[in-house]
């Protein structure tokens, strides 16, 4: 097993069964894990912000920073390794917030809403989602079988 680390505003794809794509410390950011069980191709995106219109130049340099630019690149990168849209399984985690954060940051909620909207528009179903809450998460995607695990900062690991 080889851990391939996905940083903040970063994405990685792979078709090597021994690889595990991992991203640490998702606060309000979101990890989108996609997997094609037939082609055994998977990808993991860790985006930071919902909407690229905030800074188009940044989005051009680094599409993985935003949901609306990162998600399409994630899918296209998987297609180039032989994945097909109709077979892709999508899972997502992250989008946490601070306690009582009702009136200002809301960045976690905005990230969740942006992702749901993009998948809805593109007729893609989100298979499972572990979002919100007041804790950080680490996400792992095992390329051998597409299983996706979330570890919360409290310690427990679960499959989503």
């Amino acid at each position: 097993m080889v851990d391939i680390v996905v940083g903040i505003s970063d994405l990685k794809v792979s078709h090597r069964p021994e690889d595990v794509l991992v991203t640490y410390a998702l606060g309000s950011c979101i990890a989108v894990a996609v997997y094609d069980p037939v082609a055994k191709v998977g990808g993991l995106l860790h985006y930071m912000l919902p909407d690229s219109t905030l800074d188009l130049e940044k989005a051009r340099q680094n599409p993985a920073m935003f949901a609306d630019t990162g998600i399409p690149v994630l899918f296209k990168s998987c297609y180039s390794l032989g994945a097909e849209k109709r077979r892709m399984i999508v899972r997502a985690a992250g989008g946490a917030s601070i306690l009582d954060d009702t009136n200002f940051f809301r960045i976690g909620q905005k990230n969740i809403m942006a992702m749901r909207k993009i998948f809805w528009k593109n007729n893609v179903m989100i298979e499972s989602e572990d979002t919100g809450g007041n804790f950080n998460r680490t996400v792992r995607l095992a390329l051998t079988n597409g299983k996706t695990y979330v570890k919360t900062s409290g310690g427990s690991i679960k499959e989503i």
């Binding site: 640490y24 606060g27 309000s28 950011c29 930071m48 946490a96 601070i98 804790f135 900062s153 409290g154």
Partner: peptide, 10 residues
């Protein structure tokens, strides 16, 4: 919020 928290209390 960026995920660079000071630990479990984050």
């Amino acid at each position: 919020l960026m995920g660079v928290d000071g630990g479990i209390d984050g």
